[in-house]
Simulated assay, not measured.
Amino acid sequence: MLYDAPHRGSPSPIMSDATTILVDTDLERDDAAAAATGLYLRLAGDGTISPVYEVESEPRFRVLDERLTQDTGVYAIGLHASSHRWRDDEKGGAHLVEGGPENGIFCRYDGSFTIRCPECRQPLAPGDEGSEALEEALAVWCDAPNSAYVACPGCAAWTPLTLWRSPAHDFAVGHFAITLYGTHLRSLTDGQNDHAATLLRHRLGDVAGDFAVVYARA
């Protein structure tokens, strides 16, 4: 899932289906639209997804590869690029345009999450004592992501929001992300050797397994 753009405090979530979200935490915002467009063209071109999106409020592309859906449970794929939205084009497909609600914040549907300081590993969640810096960083991220730093209440280190990881895989920030609708691919994080899930991850471009994984719940 993604959040509506936060202003102060925690933002409000948009409801959707149960999903697995792969988030590129390293890609710069200026490169996100090109990454999403490139993946769309490849997946639509080889018949993996429909070139036409569904669900106007949260665009997703139906998976046409029946074997993929059978093996993984994924029935649709969403492609996210910060500050962009999908629109129909005159050729029967879709393209990205500037604007829209995409802000690169992904988490559980109920808005709860816990992340850990990359320096001392202390957990931090919205509403915790000392979480004001986290909530401020979420607001800053949408306008000036390179300035979104979090002060750890435990060790006082200031570190980029992108480096804070969620042990429960319920939060990540990044300007390019891929939503897989229909299942929680737990094998991506629990160490199990699920060949179909690994192949899908590679098919989506995350060959090194570097993307953060977020499991969303309705």
Score class of each variant (00 low, 15 high):
Arg116Asn: 14
Leu79Met: 10
Val97Asp: 12
Gly100Pro: 08
Ala81Asn: 03
Arg87Ala: 06
Pro101Tyr: 09
Thr114Ser: 11
Ala76Val: 07
Glu119Asp: 14
Arg121Thr: 14
Ile77Asn: 00
Glu102Lys: 02
Val63Pro: 01
Ile105Val: 15
Gly111His: 09
Pro123Ser: 08
Tyr75Gly: 08
Glu102Asn: 13
Arg85Ile: 06
Glu102His: 12
Tyr75His: 15
Asp110Leu: 08
Ile77Leu: 06
Lys91Pro: 01
Pro123Glu: 04
Pro123Phe: 04
Tyr109Trp: 09
Gly73Pro: 13
Ile77Cys: 01
Arg121Cys: 05
Arg121Gly: 02
Glu98Pro: 04
His84Ser: 05
Gly93Asp: 05
Ser83Tyr: 07
Ser82Asp: 10
Arg85Trp: 08
Phe113Met: 08
Arg85Val: 11
Thr114Tyr: 00
Asp65Val: 03
Ile77Met: 08
Glu119Gly: 07
Asn103Met: 08
Asn103His: 14
Gly99Leu: 07
Gly99Ser: 11
Pro118Tyr: 04
Leu124Gly: 01
Ile77Ala: 02
Cys120Trp: 02
Ile115Pro: 00
Val63Met: 01
Pro123Asp: 08
Thr114Gly: 10
Thr72Cys: 10
Leu124Asp: 00
Thr69Lys: 04
Gly104Trp: 04
Arg116Met: 05
Ile105Gln: 13
Pro123Cys: 03
Thr114Arg: 09
His80Arg: 12
Glu90Trp: 03
Glu66Arg: 15
Glu66Val: 13
Gln70Phe: 12
Glu90Tyr: 07
Glu90His: 09
Gly99Ala: 07
Pro101Asn: 10
Lys91Gly: 05
Gly99Asp: 12
Gly93Ser: 13
Gly104Ser: 12
Val97Trp: 06
Cys117His: 01
Pro118Val: 06
